[in-house]
Nucleic acid binder design. Structure first.
Lengths: 195, 195
DNA sequence: CGCCGATTGGACCCGTCGGTCCAGACGTCT
DNA sequence: AGACGTCTGGACCGACGGGTCCAATCGGCG
């Protein structure tokens, strides 16, 4: 049903489409652009994605959801000390500063995630996983005594996640880093402020 | 150059277009939809917006930028006490909860604001004005002694603004209020935590 | 080799959408 | 009243983009 060659082509299409969408936005990317960028033909697009564009966009959404988490690893997975939190924070800021408009997160949450129920599910699941990593990280700090027991892990993690999403959205819309940088730094610093 | 009747028609077009875009997203709204929803004809659209759709979208962006600020008034303009901050916070949460997907802010920042330099300028200016109201509010609390002198108004205001933007973006993408509610509440509560 | 399904190329179709154009109605000012 | 500019209706056009179709090629397997 799908040979190694076929799987490779399919992957090339998804990668290329994701890349284009990150750079130019969902609206400005047509099947012809994807075809050209991935050196494929119309028939291949519909061969690997029978339901057409919506089908392909779903695959891209899944790909980008993975990407958003993966690009923060391994730091996101081991937020066990204050130093590691700071390392992760620097990593995130550096990444988004370099990506600017070409940001997988805002493309996914802000554009791909609209409308379609299945895609929203993908976005929701991605955010859940991300949040869980943050919650685990906050709990680790609490357990080691680096921050107060009074800190609510879910609440703090949610604030941090929202800071990143808001910062990324505004970065794309205004090309200014200060929202993301200030809000993320503030949200993390708040972890060890007295209550 | 533009009679009272003409001005009214023009306004009706902008209002109707903004409404449609809030409900269905920029991508899913065509000139024909706007024409139908505002009981106008193609020629009128191009009569009042000679450069076509881009021209109209610019007017919509300006309209929505005004709307985003206006719908928070008068509370946003008088954040002088802790109680008033809480009243504003409740107002914001209630608004976005009711609007859900049909949210002017995310339509503006997430969709209209992409690409076009002029539109980005509009978004940037709107955010600047909004931030200034918040900075003024934080400074008022500081002046009256309700919060510590050590609080950095710009930093706190930026964190609050980013919380709203992130929360609104995620609300639209996931239909969940918890991000906005938790992050905004946390960002505001942080104002009066000891440093 | 010869079969068969996976894979590929690309011409073609058709609905949609932004944009153009012209003719006519309206309104206002002299 | 008459004239001129504003306003309105809607037919029409051309480009673009998603989707269909068929024929050709590839590649593994008996």
């Amino acid at each position: 049903m799908l040979t190694a060659k076929g799987a490779a082509t399919r992957q090339r299409i998804v990668d290329g489409a994701a890349q284009l969408i990150r750079e130019q936005g969902v609206v400005n990317v047509g099947l012809d652009d994807i075809r050209a960028a991935t050196s494929t033909s119309k028939s291949q697009l519909f061969h690997y994605f029978p339901d057409g564009k919506s089908d392909l966009m779903l695959a891209v959404a899944r790909h980008e959801a993975e990407q958003v988490i993966a690009e923060q690893m391994p730091q996101l997975g081991e937020l066990t000390t204050w130093r590691k939190w700071q390392a992760w924070r620097r990593r995130v800021l550096k990444m988004y500063d370099e990506q600017r408009e070409g940001c997988a997160l805002s493309a996914l949450v802000g554009q791909l995630g609209l409308g379609d129920t299945t895609t929203r599910q993908i976005v929701g699941d991605m955010l859940d996983r991300w949040l869980q990593y943050l919650v685990d990280g906050v709990e680790a700090l609490r357990a080691s005594g680096e921050i107060s027991e009074a800190v609510d892990p879910v609440r703090s993690a949610t604030a941090i996640l929202t800071a990143i999403n808001g910062g990324a959205t505004m970065l794309v819309a205004t090309d200014r880093m200060n929202y993301l940088e200030t809000a993320l730094t503030a949200a993390i610093d708040d972890l060890r402020r007295p209550v």
